[in-house]
């Protein structure tokens, strides 16, 4: 088969759209591996589709990314296989859990991660607490030294007073 004719047949467009049959797909993938021009043509078509999509794009409203991140933040994977080195009790719990959730591999629960997500506005609060902490520490050291100096002066004066008497 002439490769140019194959590229011009419209099979590549059908494949990119996801409309090609299994036989066509299998043949195309073989030819793609063999002929770089087929791979290039496919890449071009993918780029064309992306340009079309860009022309029809609609910007999502602000805050959508945060909603997505919140939605995926609590995902926890429940592994199918149980590591053999876990204690028997854990294995038992896991097996029971699998029975209940046989058809649902993923569950959404509050994450047990040791990390926490907080609003960015808190950074200013933390910065203020840090700065105030430093100021109070400075004052505390200053007044401690001042107090110690005052005590020494009093002690000295008392000694002088005793000498005068």
């Amino acid at each position: 088969m002439e490769i140019k004719n194959y590229i011009a047949s419209g099979v590549l467009e059908a494949y990119v759209m996801g409309s090609a049959s299994e036989t066509e797909t299998a043949e195309l993938l073989k030819l793609k591996a063999k002929y770089p021009e087929v791979a290039d043509a496919l890449f071009e078509l993918e780029m064309d589709l992306e340009r079309i999509a860009q022309q029809m794009s609609i910007n999502p409203p602000p805050g959508t990314l945060e909603k997505i991140e919140d939605a995926i933040g609590g995902l926890v994977k429940v592994e199918d296989r149980m590591p053999d080195d876990r204690p028997p009790f854990e294995k038992y719990e896991y097996q029971n859990f699998n029975k209940r959730e046989a058809n649902n591999q993923f569950i959404e629960v509050e994450s047990s991660s040791s990390y926490m997500r907080i609003h960015k506005a808190w950074r200013w609060v933390f910065a203020a607490v840090f700065v105030l902490g430093k100021i109070f520490l400075g004052f505390a050291i200053y007044y401690y030294l001042e107090n110690r100096q005052a005590l020494k002066t009093i002690e000295k004066l008392e000694k002088q007073q005793e000498v005068i008497r």
């Binding site: 860009q54 609609i58 910007n59 926890v76 991660s113 990390y115």
Partner: peptide, 30 residues
């Protein structure tokens, strides 16, 4: 969870949703 892998490790290895969002969210919503 796989041996020696923490949940935090797995979350970090999820395909970069933020990157995909920045690139394709407009196209996807359209």
């Amino acid at each position: 969870m796989l041996k020696g892998q923490t949940e935090a490790d797995m979350i970090l290895k999820v395909p970069d949703i933020r990157l995909l969002y920045n690139k394709y969210s407009g196209m996807l919503l359209g």
